[in-house]
Design a protein around this nucleic acid. Sequence first.
RNA 1: GCCCAGAUGGCGGAAUUGGUAGACGCGCACGACUCAAACUCGUGUUCUAACGAGUGCGGGUUCGAUUCCCGCUCUGGGUACCA
Length: 1164
Amino acid sequence: MQYQFNQIEKDWQKYWAENKTFKAKDNSAKPKYYVLDMFPYPSGAGLHVGHPLGYIASDVYARYKRLLGFNVLHPMGYDSFGLPAEQYAIQTGQHPAVTTKMNIEGGIDKQGNVIPGYRNQLDKIGFSFDWDREVRTSDPNYYKWTQWIFKQLFNSWYNKDADKAEKIDILIEQFKSKGNADVNAVCDDVATFSAADWNSWNEEQQQKMLLNYRIAFLSDTWVNWCPALGTVLANDEIKDGVSERGGHPVEQKLMRQWSMRITAYAERLINGLEGLDWTDSVKDIQRNWIGKSQGASVKFKVLSPTLSKGEGEATPKYLTGDAAIGHLLLDNAKEMRRNPTEAESVLWIHLKGKKLDVKFRRQHPIDSYIADFVCLDKKLILEVDGKIHDLQKEADEARTERLNELGYEVLRFKNEDVLADIDTVITKIATILAQRPSIKDEAKVLPFGKDLGWEVSVFTPRPDTIFGVSFMVLAPEHELVDVITTPEQKAEIEAYKKAASLKSERDRQSDIKNITGAFTGAYAIHPFTGDKVQIWIGDYVLATYGTGAVMAVPCGDQRDWDFATHFGIEIKNIFKDKDISAAAYTEKDAIITDSDFLNDLPAKEAIKKAIAEIEKRGFGKGKTQYRLRDAVFSRQRYWGEPFPVYYKGDVPYLVDDKDLPIVLPEVEKYLPTEDGKPPLGRAKNWAYKVLPSGKDLGWEGPIELNTMPGWAGSSWYFLRYMDANNDNEFVAKEKVNYWKNVDLYIGGAEHATGHLLYARFWTKFLYDLGYIPFEEPFQKMINQGMIQGNSAKAIKLLTHVYIADINNNINTPQIDACEIPEFFISSDLLEKLEDNDIDLSVKIKERLNNLGRAIKQQNPEKIGELDFAPNASYSIYIPINYVKNNILDYEDLKENNHQFNRAEFICNENGDFIVEREVEKMSKSKYNVQTPDELVEKYGADTLRCYEMFLGPLEQHKPWDTQGITGVHGFLKKLWRLFHSGENESFYVDETPILKSVVGGPPPSGELEGDEGALKSLHKTIKKVKEDIERFSFNTPVSAYMICVNELTAQKCNKRAILEPLLIILAPYAPHIAEELWAKLGNKESITYAVYPKYNEAYLVESNHKYPVSFNGKMRFVLELPTALTPTEVEKEVLANEQTTKYLEGKTPKKIIVVPQKIVNVVV
RNA sequence: GCCCAGAUGGCGGAAUUGGUAGACGCGCACGACUCAAACUCGUGUUCUAACGAGUGCGGGUUCGAUUCCCGCUCUGGGUACCA
């Protein structure tokens, strides 16, 4: 009987589904094991052979664990929200829910394309998934709980003292009783307030304060906004300042968005990595991403230009803030500029750009205050009240008094006035302005610069090198740049700033060689030495990182060294006995010198001492800095989870648990609205009804228009599998307590900084709140390598067509492009052609001429001549199914592919057309995609499973090549034949038991034969396969199976006692054939839960060992000796051997090394 | 630049703690079966005519190195004027 894999596989897949063979029990006496594949996005293109690679490995492991007696959880589902479905919806108008469903379940789409369906494709490969636990992130029953978790994040804050997230209620209690002075939280910058302050605030003020603490919070973030697309773009979606798709302009825009305070977990996310069984490379990627650096923040006072020049230079007139608290004011001003109230925004529109003929500044520091708007020239301040001003009437009065003292007039407006009648407000301002004198007319400058004591704050990981500071560099965008630049340097600085702003982020990053910068003319004071230190700006300093400023230590930092060298700035050497004439000394192992109290200390101790001293003298402190930013959690998209959030004014509130899920509404279009709101802005009745309760009177609040990002649903899906159908909780406590975290997680390393970091963050958060009993989601992870396509390309010659008229003038041809033949040349001929092989050129020319003549005959008025350029050719992709062994079946290609109907193929001497091969990513456009379906059809799922594993180590990238698949298929056929040794290949096994003498006991001495040989083959394989699977070496067991089957075939073994255990160990790799033969052996239960055979060392014991004998490490011959011999006896035997004499060439051996059961080495 | 991983026949790869380099499979060659082809089976296959050489290159440690150490080259991935 033949191995009819198609029928067998269909039957068993049906059996497994009907009997729910792989259903996992949620509690069991068996030990648990959780094997998970990374959540797939169900794309319309379906699976190619690269996708199931990881699934096959995890399935092998899951099946293996079941055989070992584990209760295995092995689920599958879909991360079904996402951009492609939305993009497709925009293009075709089909609801993403419809196309997503079809991508999973299969069908025929509106365009008539047949969609195979992920599930159908997966089913054909014979995976042992527990499909009753399937989840889809876009299913309201699933995202109900994503929304619920969001609510928990919103209702939590991070308590640094407890080092964990806590409920926000705890925080509110503290605010009520003690204010925020004692609260040690990870939060935005907030001013200190008292309990009295808190209690006096209204609901809105309190809520706004709480947003600064919540783990899910609203904040204004700079984003790449593309107005034409109505969406925010990621950095890599932008090329040369325009959107990659469509080439639309992109602008930086402040946008109010949801963020996640992942930074609170930075330290725990780094520390947690230690205990994880992941590859070092993924751990390193996460460590780099979090980017922890320890050091100190140090403040440098800025010397006034006046003092620096020593000649009474006028203070810049716009420097009006109180120098002592300047940096604070500036930071506040910056912050407030980003968060203008509506009234402020309206007023600003009418003031900015000298609309009233004078320059207004907004949120500008004056003395120790920040004025909402100020016209310095006319000394007029405009205040718009309504935020917190109501609370501090008294403070306002004091403020006005002080400002009046300074010669300012203060005009106050109310929010309502501005919003209700801006014209009246503007008229009033214009009137006052007209009355006030301009200070330009006055002789003296502003008097307020008590001293220019601005400070530049920097972070340094090397405070030990502080005595090596010889200059400072600010980012060109740094707030202080305008403030401190001296008039002489103004022009240069402005020019540099402009140049820097014109460079794209990419340009600034890639241009490392060009050292650029400009001197501000200002100096800072070295906090220890009191020396004057030049302040420069340079675009190698990034405004977005740290404080946007560095203290430059040219002797210890290469970029600083380059900068100093380039601009001829002094380089101090503070490292003992280190040469810094050619480059900076960047190692952390030098002894510090010329550094006052740090002298003679090694760097590490110097760091500690420097921090202590900096803190003691009060101009800085020890600090740990992270590169990690809070994660933006809003997307201006349709196809994602809606937020369970509605607004009362601009304050967000959560919807009630009982109203979850907030279901994604229907919209007529999936595009942003005309006024730039996200697609949900198109939804009708998109509001949350707050029902009358208590004193609340029932009203409607608009629901959030953004949706959640892709990582929301995938950050916790592994928990849902434990309890996929629970309507009351996201996961029942007893279930998560049983299953705990994922034991083996398989998927691509490309998720290292996305999914894998966010999922860890959410897991830690849920742990903090006590919902789950573990902190890390994925204990062991394997990153499978990409299966690359093996593209085929045909070389196309460049042909010319030209017409020469009577006067031999060459004209542009007036012929139809369709009539020009396309010449392709076998790739092995190309070289000849390039070498000007005359024969070949002549041959091709002749063919061209013939063709030209033929065409000319038909169209005498049209055609001129055809020619080709031997050195000009290019390659075009050929669908790989027309290629076998690099030979193109061009007749077949021409017949089936109209693209090639004008093609002429020039073959080599053997009449073959050879294509070029290239290993690259599998993609439709490269015609190199191999779907698993065709292979399953042709060879069967078991063959595909074994072959994908056989290709090589799971983690490695490898090219796909179907040629080898026949070998694996042959192995399964050979296995089948072992069981069909009866007449006419009918099923037959020998039921006689194994020789008693060898069961359990040591085998009889001498050459093993018959049963002993079969036992040895079997047990060697049991051992090898078990060890290999356990160390996740999935490719080597396949070889072991092959060797075993080859040996058993050679031995003509047909004993049940040998073949039955073999089936069990093979079942994880080739489950269908194993089940079939297992059933044929008379077993009634599925092989899934059979018992993995134990290997017996006794069968592997050899009586003889073939000793390789080497001379000076070079193997010369093999000598078979009994294993029982002692090393001395072995030595004797070797010396006595005549071959030894031959290789000794009469010399006496110096030494003989005998490693028992291994080798003999003779040293001559 | 920095961090990580890797480099072995014509190809995919094996060699788990230093002990016969090239298992297993593909491909290729030859042979058997067949009228023939396919399938299947068998034999051979690192290079070299041979002596010998040989695991990216150059050194080192060792009786012995694909394996350990030092220095490089190349490939892939990550990351980036990160202070």
